[in-house]
Computed example of a mutant assay.
Amino acid sequence: MTVSVSLPEVWSALEDVRARRPLVHNITSYVAMTVSANALLALGALPAMAHATEEVEDFVATADALVINIGTLSSDLSAAMRKAAKHAGEVGKPWVLDPVGCGASAYRTHAAVALAALAPDVIRGNASEILSLAGEASAGKGVESISRAEEATGAAMALAKRTGAVVAVTGAVDYVTGGGAPIPVRTGHALMPLSTAIGCALSAVIAAFTAVRPPREAALAALAVFGAAGSAAAGRCRGPGHLPAEICDALYLMSPDTLGQHARIGAPVAG
Rank of each mutant, 00 (worst) to 15 (best):
T2V: 12
V3W: 00
S6V: 03
E9P: 02
V10P: 03
S12D: 08
L14Q: 02
E15N: 10
D16K: 06
A19Y: 11
R20S: 12
L23A: 03
V24Y: 00
S29I: 03
A32I: 01
M33D: 04
M33E: 01
N38M: 14
G44I: 01
A45I: 01
A45R: 04
A50K: 00
E55Q: 12
V56Q: 02
D58H: 13
A65F: 03
N69W: 06
I70A: 02
L77D: 06
M81G: 00
P94E: 00
W95T: 00
V96D: 12
L97G: 05
L97Q: 06
L97Y: 08
C102S: 07
Y107R: 00
R108K: 08
H110R: 08
A111R: 02
A116W: 15
D121R: 14
G125I: 10
N126Q: 14
A127S: 12
S132C: 15
S138I: 14
G140A: 08
S145W: 09
E151F: 14
A155E: 13
L159F: 15
T170R: 15
D174A: 07
G179Y: 06
P184N: 08
G188E: 12
A190F: 14
G199F: 08
G199W: 11
A201R: 01
L202S: 05
A204W: 06
V205M: 03
I206P: 03
R213Y: 10
G227I: 06
A228L: 04
A234I: 07
G235K: 13
G235E: 13
P240G: 08
E246N: 02
Y252N: 07
L253V: 09
T258Q: 04
L259C: 05
A263I: 11
A267N: 02
A270F: 04
